[in-house]
């Protein structure tokens, strides 16, 4: 696995500003995204990469989720303001993509790929096992706030079925038996 922590040490390079992991365990909630220097810096660096402001939308939605764990209506409105877009437009784009959480999720968002290649493996069983081990139903947050388990469409790891994504990490060749160990590994 890649240690994405490296990026924090030196100032963020503008070329890397639009590709920061936005589904992470360590969220740093903030009500206002662009009231602190970090948010303003990210916005400025992202904007510097495109000829049009609008192109910063996906990176900034990602930033909202990176900070808060999900994308709230307030964040959408704030981003709309920063990019000269209407909040409605931002909502239209946000709801088009599956990776922007429209509600808070558990600290670990566990996405089990159940698409064709994983389906041919044991994806359905792996998914059920995650649900039973975490004591949740699909999409809900476990009582301790640690987990949310959902089904995902193809994660692009078909040769390593069953593929499971937990936040920004991939777990591959997952079998139902391996599920408890994976959960143990997550803090």
């Amino acid at each position: 696995m890649t240690d994405t922590g490296d990026q924090v040490k030196k100032p963020l390079h503008p070329a890397a500003a639009s590709s920061q992991a936005f589904q992470v365990a360590d969220i740093r909630p903030t009500e206002r995204l662009f009231d602190d220097p970090e948010g303003r810096d990210r916005l400025e660096k992202v904007l510097s990469r495109y000829p049009e402001k609008r192109a910063a939308l996906l990176p900034m939605l990602g930033y909202a989720q990176e900070r808060n764990g999900w994308v709230s209506d307030e964040s959408m409105a704030e981003i709309a303001g920063a990019l000269d877009l209407t909040p409605a437009y931002v909502r239209s784009v946000t709801t088009f993509y599956t990776m922007y959480n429209r509600h808070p999720v558990g600290r670990h968002l566990i996405q089990v790929c159940t698409c064709i290649s994983c389906h041919l493996d044991e994806a359905d069983e792996v998914f059920e096992r995650f649900l039973s081990e975490t004591g949740t139903r699909a999409g809900e947050i476990s009582e301790d706030g640690r987990y949310t388990v959902i089904e995902a469409e193809c994660l692009g790891a078909c040769g390593f079925a069953t593929a499971v994504q937990v936040n920004d990490r991939y777990f591959e060749n997952v079998t139902p038996e391996k599920v408890p160990a994976i959960l143990d590994e997550l803090d």
């Binding site: 409605a88 437009y89 909502r91 239209s92 088009f96």
Partner: peptide
């Protein structure tokens, strides 16, 4: 010129 009505979801 007011993008206030949109398609939501997909």
């Amino acid at each position: 010129g007011d993008n206030a009505l949109v398609v939501a979801q997909r």
